[in-house]
């Protein structure tokens, strides 16, 4: 054998799944392409500006404070894009940038980077923005218009407010339901012709992309399924109780960020339980919190907080849902 090609000695197993962490991450990034395209179809260039700014904020922070090559694993990219998708189209892009930076800095790097964080960084960034700039974050431009038209004051100077804009804004379907008891046709929700954040408009596109990821086992299908099931069951029970007061399950499922949240945010591997039983509990918990916040809370939308709160529960869930080790507990066939 030639000396230029020495043998290597590694620990077993010597085979490994073709999936690698960067591959999973970048596949998720790619699967967000259609969602992004849909967002830009509805909200024009503003959608791309906002997402790009959030992503840039995330990447710059990861590069600056992170350790060298961690940009390549793609996780900061996902955080940035997902954060961007939860924002309204008319947001000043400096806010999106700040959100991305916060998401990575305080959501991820302080815990030691990839894999160590407790809260979904994108949602933490979103919650930060929501708390910091409540007005800007609840100004929802209506979809439509020409592609090049800005949907609000995207280009406001850093630290300055959006100022007076002439963009046509409208309430989200959930806002309409909560504050004016006005419904929105479910077909509009499904195809995306309603007001709302960039990524929450078209349930159809998100579900398709999510199914693709689930088939590749890049997301844990149990989580979205249990979220949807919990929301549907609870909503149906309430709807049967008092139909005029509580909206129908279909509306609850397809309005707001539920589809995006359940598919892309709740399934973030780092911040969801590692056990399958835990995943069911986690998803069901999110579903219940979403319904509780939407119906009895002061906010129209509860997906973000539902997921963040359950993120906080994850270490606890992991602890109590440890699998029963083979050959312990109730044992079959002992003689």
């Amino acid at each position: 054998m030639s000396s230029s090609n020495p043998l290597v000695v590694t620990a077993s197993p010597h085979l490994s799944t073709p999936d690698s962490t960067p591959r999973i991450m970048w596949t998720v990034v790619a699967s967000l392409g259609p969602v992004l395209a849909a967002a830009s179809y509805f909200f024009g260039v503003s959608a791309l500006l906002v997402v790009a700014a959030a992503t840039l904020g995330a990447l710059v922070t990861e590069f600056w404070f992170g350790k060298g090559r961690t940009l390549l694993d793609g996780s900061a990219m996902i955080t940035g894009i997902l954060l961007g998708l939860t924002l309204p189209a008319g947001l000043p892009i400096w806010m999106a940038f700040v959100g991305g930076a916060f998401a990575i800095g305080f959501g991820k790097l302080i815990f030691g980077g990839l894999g160590q964080n407790v809260f979904n960084p994108a949602l933490l960034g979103r919650a930060f923005l929501q708390a910091a700039f409540p007005v800007a974050l609840t100004t929802w431009p209506k979809p439509g218009g020409t592609w090049w038209e800005l949907r609000g004051d995207n280009l406001a100077l850093p630290l300055m407010s959006a100022g007076a804009t002439d963009a046509i804004t409208g309430a989200t379907p959930l806002g309409l339901m909560k504050f004016e008891h006005a419904g929105t046709p479910v077909s509009d929700l499904f195809f995306g012709t309603t007001g709302g954040s960039l990524g929450e408009t078209s349930a159809l596109v998100i579900l398709l992309c999510g199914t693709y990821l689930a088939l590749k086992n890049y997301l844990n299908w149990r989580i979205p399924v249990s979220v949807f099931a919990a929301v549907a069951i609870l909503a149906e029970m309430l709807h049967l109780l008092d139909a005029p007061r509580f909206p129908a399950p279909a509306f609850m499922l397809f309005s707001g960020g539920l589809v995006l949240g359940a598919t892309y945010m709740a399934t973030d591997m780092v911040t969801s339980p590692v056990t399958n039983l835990g995943s069911w509990i986690f998803g069901a918990g999110i579903g219940v919190l979403v319904v509780v916040i939407r119906i009895w809370g002061g906010l129209a939308e509860g997906v973000m907080y539902g997921i963040l709160l359950m993120n906080a529960m994850v270490p606890f869930i992991n602890r109590v849902t440890q699998p029963r080790v083979f050959g312990t507990g109730r044992v079959t066939g002992v003689r």
Binding site: I110, V118, A127, F128, V292, Y305, L308, L309, N311
Partner: peptide
């Protein structure tokens, strides 16, 4: 520092409960 930063995140998450039962 870590405890406080986690508490900050928890506090952010708890803002989701704002207005509970008072709407």
């Amino acid at each position: 520092a870590l405890v406080l930063l986690i508490a900050g995140s928890l506090s952010l998450a708890f803002m989701g409960f704002a207005g509970l039962l008072s709407s």
